[in-house]
């Protein structure tokens, strides 16, 4: 069997998919990053290797997410893509003709507007993480309900309360206030979903023309309360694709396939990556007053990548060494 790997290492989750030549997802893995991107990715690869037949040949690897460069040097990726493009590519494949992608992940949220099969506009949340998965997680924790039950509970609401969604801090104090006044939990949860949807549409979705088909993806799409709140606010049908929580990884796999179609052999180092020793470290360069924090990635004690320097003094030095070696 041959296929492609898509890896999406984000702030909250690390997702890996294995996709076959027919663009079918045969394996998908969703793990919490928990601040340890290197270890989590290795764990994910290990799990994936166990579930795939030993004869599997990986023809291409794509990485995306905020740790896309880190994961790319670790595994030897063929394509490194930003999250917007990866999510758009995956949404187009899952829901042909999609015109709007709403994506809410752990710490960021984005909207992608597509027209005639290409991205026409996009926006990402800027300074504020209100309305992202982390906030929902935190509130579920505070209310002592498992995040998985959050959505179903919100659906039981009869009269959702109005909660200030402009800011996560205000939303929290508003929720506490409503609790103290005696509102029921489902009404508060539904109110919170509505507040987050309003916040999303007013910030990220500001000025965007939202047309059907609308796809809602990212980890938060698992929350049925959020889906209902979007449907209520927009008056449109909201599609949740089957692989909603690994769409970035799927997009990366699709892009890796596209790259492989050009006839390039993959740079993938193999599943042995899961057992290699990777270490990361950083130091402050004292070459100029910028004092850049330079990050070094080592594989088995050898530095394989550096970044973070504005002038390129360290990253380029390494690139030169590598050219000399090869």
């Amino acid at each position: 069997m041959t296929g492609y790997l898509g890896i999406d290492v984000g702030s909250v989750s690390t997702n890996i998919v294995f996709m076959n030549e027919d663009n079918h997802v045969l394996e998908s893995i969703y793990l919490r990053t928990q601040g340890q991107p290197v270890k989590t990715l290795q764990l994910g690869l290990k799990k994936l290797a166990e579930s795939l037949p030993a004869s599997t040949v990986i023809k291409g690897v794509g990485t995306t997410g905020s740790a896309r460069h880190l994961s790319a040097v670790m595994v030897g990726a063929d394509v490194v893509k930003n999250e917007i493009t990866a999510h758009a590519v995956a949404a187009l494949q899952q829901v042909p003709g999609v015109q709007t992608v709403l994506e809410i992940g752990g710490q960021d949220s984005k909207i992608i507007i597509l027209r005639k099969g290409v991205v026409a506009d996009f926006a990402m949340n800027t300074v504020c993480a209100a309305g992202t998965g982390s906030f929902l997680d935190q509130q579920a924790g505070r209310l002592n309900i498992p995040i998985e039950e959050f959505g179903a509970l919100a659906l039981k609401a009869r009269t959702p309360v109005r909660i200030a969604g402009r800011c996560a801090v205000f939303a929290e104090s508003d929720m506490i206030h409503k609790q103290q006044m005696g509102f029921e939990l489902p009404d508060i949860l539904a109110g919170l979903c509505e507040a987050l949807v309003r916040n999303y549409l007013n910030n990220v979705g500001k000025g965007k023309e939202i047309l059907e088909p609308v796809v809602f993806q990212g980890g938060v799409a698992a929350n049925i309360g959020m889906r209902k709140a979007f449907e209520k606010e927009l008056g449109l049908k909201i599609n949740i694709p089957r692989y909603y929580n690994v769409m970035g990884a799927l997009g990366a796999a699709l892009l890796a396939k596209e790259a492989a179609a050009k006839g390039n052999a993959t740079r993938f180092k193999g599943f042995r990556v899961a057992d290699m020793n990777f270490s990361t470290g950083s130091f402050e360069c004292s070459g100029c007053p910028n004092m850049c924090e330079v990050i070094e990635i080592s594989e088995e004690g050898t530095v394989i990548a550096r970044w973070g320097d504005r002038c390129g003094r360290w990253s380029n030095a390494l690139a030169r060494e590598q050219v000399q070696i090869s």
Binding site: N82, I84, T85, K116, V118, V119, D121, F122
Partner: peptide, 17 residues
């Protein structure tokens, strides 16, 4: 960087289409 990369992808995609 993410935004600029995504933006240029979008522009090139549209152009090629």
């Amino acid at each position: 960087v993410t935004r600029i990369e995504a933006f240029l992808d979008m522009v090139r995609w549209k152009k090629s289409q």
